[in-house]
Simulated assay, not measured.
Amino acid sequence: MDLLERLARWRTFADDCLDGYPWEVEEFLMDVNSRSTLQELMAASREDRAVDHHLIAAELDAIDTTLRTIFDVEAFPKMPPSEWWLRCVPSYAARDFCREFKGAYGVSIAARSKFDLDVDAMVQLSANGMAPADICLKVAEEQWYVTKRPALLFRACRRSLPMDRSARRALWAWATGNVSAPGLRAALGE
């Protein structure tokens, strides 16, 4: 990845954290380590005339400033304070992340995320008798949080709806735009 791609990835990570990080600890660690790589690329780009270093630095600073407002749980105190992204973690995240992080590092993070709210609502719709395809289509039509990216939608459906491997393949194809709504209904047996 080049500098601009790394910056975009960091921006996406910040958005995920602000909404309550919905992924697993392994992804989180890769994301925070990508910030270190971004730092190195920033230093190397100072001499590159094709890159507007000042604009990129300003955007990075804005993302960092926002992210630091929630990165207030010190999880790894041996890391240098200047590398706050490696030293601290968000004060809240998705339930699964919080459980996994507590188990791995003994650090408690509040379970609060838009992802969990959507998953809980999807579970409730299923418990009320709504068919899985109808739930998926409703979520997409109403543009719930989990529809921000296909992987989020797929993850939410897997967490909330009973599906076999074939149904999960169809769900992924639908989430990525490769299967239509009728195709999703047919694959889910509706």
Rank of each mutant, 00 (worst) to 15 (best):
R95S: 12
A156E: 07
R169N: 06
F97P: 04
D116E: 14
A43H: 14
K78G: 13
R155T: 04
R149D: 08
G129M: 09
F76A: 05
P22E: 02
A131H: 14
Q143V: 08
L184W: 00
F154P: 03
A127L: 04
C88I: 02
A8P: 10
D120H: 08
D16E: 15
D116I: 14
T66N: 15
L188Y: 14
C136Y: 13
W23R: 09
S108R: 15
V139L: 10
N33E: 01
R168H: 10
R11L: 12
S45I: 07
F13K: 02
T147G: 04
E40R: 07
E5D: 07
F13I: 02
C17M: 02
T37K: 06
E24V: 05
L41G: 06
R99I: 00
L29T: 12
G177F: 01
W23C: 07
A167Y: 13
A62C: 03
T12R: 12
A140F: 13
W172E: 09
G20E: 12
D52E: 06
N33S: 05
P182H: 02
I56D: 12
F154Y: 06
R35I: 00
A14M: 08
D31Q: 01
S160V: 10
K78C: 11
R168G: 00
M79E: 11
S108E: 08
L18I: 05
I56K: 13
P80G: 00
D116L: 06
E5Q: 11
Y145I: 04
T12P: 03
F71V: 01
S160H: 09
Y21E: 08
A8M: 03
Y92G: 07
P132A: 04
D15Q: 02
M1C: 14
F71K: 10
A186G: 11
L55Q: 05
G177N: 15
D19P: 03
M122Y: 00
W85M: 14
L38Y: 15
R165D: 13
A110T: 03
G20S: 08
L41I: 03
A8K: 10
E59I: 13
R95W: 13
C157L: 13
A111E: 08
R11P: 05
L18M: 09
R46F: 06
D72Q: 07
L67M: 05
Y105K: 04
F76G: 03
R46N: 09
P77N: 10
L41V: 03
P90S: 10
A156R: 07
L41A: 14
F76V: 11
L38I: 07
F76P: 04
